[in-house]
């Protein structure tokens, strides 16, 4: 029962299920939040919990399938490199977008208490 392949398969399946749940939560969260700056939280949940963890789980699953032969290492390497790239570039991209939108005053901070960077945007 405690085979190496079975352990990897269980861990990979658990990570993929976690990613799928986080994807649905993130998509619902986009509808429930009220302005652009709150939707950044939902997008980050979808990027990190929904993509990076699911890709690592997929890579672990692909190591256990024997029909691939020797190309299972190729698939594993590709998916791990993609997971590292998404981990670094996802946060950088949404940060750039938020800076651009705030400086150009495209989106207002709707239920607002104080905005010290730009007091005109608040209420």
């Amino acid at each position: 029962m405690l085979d190496g392949a079975t352990v990897l398969r269980v861990i990979g399946s658990a990570l993929v299920c976690l990613g799928a749940f986080a994807a649905v939560v993130s998509a619902i969260g986009f509808h429930r939040f009220k302005n652009f700056y709150l939707r950044l939280h939902a997008s980050t949940v979808g990027t990190i919990w929904g993509t990076v963890y699911a890709l690592v789980g997929t890579a672990l699953i692909s190591l256990t399938i024997e029909e691939f032969g020797a190309t299972k290492w190729f698939i594993f390497g590709n998916i791990i490199v993609t997971a590292i790239l998404v981990f670094l570039l996802g946060s950088a991209g949404s940060h750039t977008l938020a800076r651009g939108v705030h400086k150009a005053r495209v989106a207002r901070v709707q239920p607002c208490v104080a905005d010290k960077l730009d007091p005109e945007l608040c209420g």
Binding site: S26, F36, L40, G46, T47, G50, G90, L97, A107
Partner: peptide
């Protein structure tokens, strides 16, 4: 706004 749309496309691509 335009920022919402670009953020949604970002997440759709991931």
């Amino acid at each position: 706004t335009i920022g919402d749309q670009v953020l949604a496309i970002d997440t759709i691509t991931y």
